[in-house]
C-alpha cells in the first residue's frame, strides 16, 4: 500500500531544485479552480443580488458574514483586513480536507501545503506584530527577563511548526487509516462500510482542523498585535 505523494512530471526548476507536478498540486489546482469559479459566478451574479437574500445569495452572504463576524469575535476590532485572507484560507483547507471524498489526494496531507499555510500565518503574525508593537515587538522576546529569550524564540518558531504538523498529521492520519480500511475490505464492502469513516475523517475532522488552523492563526496574529 503506497501512501506517498506521486511525482508526475517536472514543471520547472527553482534554485536548481525540480518542482514536480504532484498529486497534491493537481488537487490544489482543482480546488483553486472550483473556488475561483465560485468567485467568478458570485461576481457575475452580484448585480442580480436581491435586497432579501434567497438560495445561492443567502449561502454566499452567510459565508461572508460568518467569516466577518468570526474574525471580529476572535481577533477583536481593527483586524477587518484579515477577513478576506482567512476566508480564502478556511475555504481552501475545508475543501482540501473534503477533497478525499471525491477521490483526490488531500492537499492538506502534504507538509508542503500545510507548511505553506503555516508560513503565511507566521509572516502575518510577525509582520502585524512589528507594525503594531514597533519596539515592544523585540522587547517581548526578552520578557519577563532576558534569560527567557531562547524560550520565547523557540515558542515563536514552534507556532508555525505546530500549525503545519497538526493539520498535516490529522489529515494524513485519516488518509492512512482510510487507505488501510479500503485495503482490508473486500471490493463488495467498499461501497457502504467506509462511509461513516469518511464522514468522520474527511467531514468532521476536516471541518474541525480547518476551524482549528484558522482560529489559531487568528489568535496568534491578534496576540502578537496587542501592545502590552
Amino acid at each position: 500500500m503506497d501512501f506517498s505523494i506521486k511525482n508526475h512530471r517536472v514543471l520547472f526548476h527553482l534554485w536548481d531544485t525540480p518542482v514536480y507536478l504532484t498529486d497534491t498540486l493537481i488537487a490544489t489546482w482543482i480546488i483553486m479552480g472550483a473556488l475561483i469559479l465560485l468567485a467568478v459566478v458570485v461576481r457575475v451574479r452580484l448585480r442580480r443580488f436581491q435586497e432579501v437574500p434567497r438560495g445561492f445569495q443567502n449561502i454566499i452572504e452567510t459565508m461572508v458574514e460568518s467569516m466577518d463576524n468570526f474574525t471580529k469575535t476572535i481577533m477583536g476590532p481593527g483586524f477587518d483586513e484579515f477577513g478576506p485572507y482567512f476566508f480564502g484560507v478556511f475555504l481552501f483547507i475545508l475543501l482540501a480536507n473534503y477533497s478525499g471524498l471525491f477521490g483526490l489526494r488531500q492537499p492538506t496531507a502534504d507538509l508542503a501545503v500545510t507548511g505553506a499555510l503555516a508560513m503565511m500565518s507566521f509572516v502575518l503574525i510577525h509582520f502585524r506584530g512589528i507594525r503594531m508593537q514597533k519596539r515592544g515587538y523585540i522587547k517581548e522576546y526578552f520578557s519577563p527577563h532576558p534569560v527567557f529569550f531562547p524560550i520565547n524564540l523557540v515558542g515563536e518558531i514552534s507556532k508555525p511548526v505546530s500549525l503545519a504538523f497538526r493539520l498535516f498529521g490529522n489529515i494524513l492520519g485519516g488518509v492512512i487509516i482510510m487507505g488501510l480500511i479500503y485495503g482490508m475490505l473486500p471490493l463488495a464492502l467498499r461501497i457502504v462500510l467506509p462511509d461513516l469513516l469518511h464522514a468522520y475523517f474527511d467531514v468532521f475532522a476536516g471541518s474541525l482542523q480547518a476551524f482549528i488552523f484558522t482560529i489559531l492563526s487568528m489568535t496568534f496574529i491578534a496576540q502578537k498585535s496587542t501592545t502590552e
Binding site: 468567485a39 461576481r43 461572508v64 478576506p84 480564502g88 475555504l91
Partner: peptide, 10 residues
C-alpha cells in the same frame, strides 16, 4: 487564491 477570492467574492 485568497487574492482572487477576496477581490471577486469576499
Amino acid at each position: 487564491l485568497t487574492g482572487v477570492l477576496a477581490f471577486l467574492l469576499y
